[in-house]
C-alpha cells in the first residue's frame, strides 16, 4: 500500500523532510517505524527514542500497535505543546 508519511517539529528537522510517500506492507505503525528506521541515519535518529514520539493515523491520535489497513496518512511528531 501507498502511504503519505508526515513529520513535525524535531522529527521533521532530524529527517530533513516534512513528508514522504512510502510503499509498504507493514501491518502496524510499529512495523512501519522499523522500516523507516532502516532508511538511513536521519530516520534512525528521529526514531531513536520512541517514548518521545506520537503518531496520528488519518489525523486521529493512535498508538504504535495500531493497524495500518485502510490508512492513507501517517504523521509522526513529539508530544504536543499547545496553549
Amino acid at each position: 500500500m501507498k502511504l503519505t508519511v508526515l513529520y513535525f517539529a524535531w522529527l521533521r528537522e532530524r529527517i530533513a523532510e516534512p513528508r514522504e510517500e512510502v510503499e509498504t506492507e507493514a501491518a502496524t505503525v510499529g512495523a512501519l517505524v522499523e522500516e523507516l528506521r532502516a532508511r538511513g541515519p536521519r530516520h534512525a535518529a528521529a526514531f531513536a527514542d520512541m517514548g518521545a514520539v506520537r503518531v496520528a493515523l488519518d489525523q486521529d491520535l493512535a498508538t504504535m500497535d495500531a493497524p495500518l489497513a485502510g490508512v492513507r496518512e501517517v504523521a509522526f511528531f513529539p508530544p504536543m505543546t499547545g496553549g
Binding site: F8, A9, A75, F77, P78, M80, T81, G82, G83
Partner: peptide, 29 residues
C-alpha cells in the same frame, strides 16, 4: 485548555541568545 495543551497538534519552538529549542511537554500538563 487542559485538552488543547496536550491533545491538539501544536509544537512550540523558542529562539533566544542565538539558540533555538523545542519546548518539551510538561508532565503536569
Amino acid at each position: 485548555m487542559d485538552y488543547l495543551k496536550s491533545r491538539a497538534p501544536f509544537w512550540k519552538k523558542e529562539t533566544g541568545a542565538g539558540q533555538a529549542q523545542w519546548v518539551a511537554a510538561r508532565d503536569e500538563d
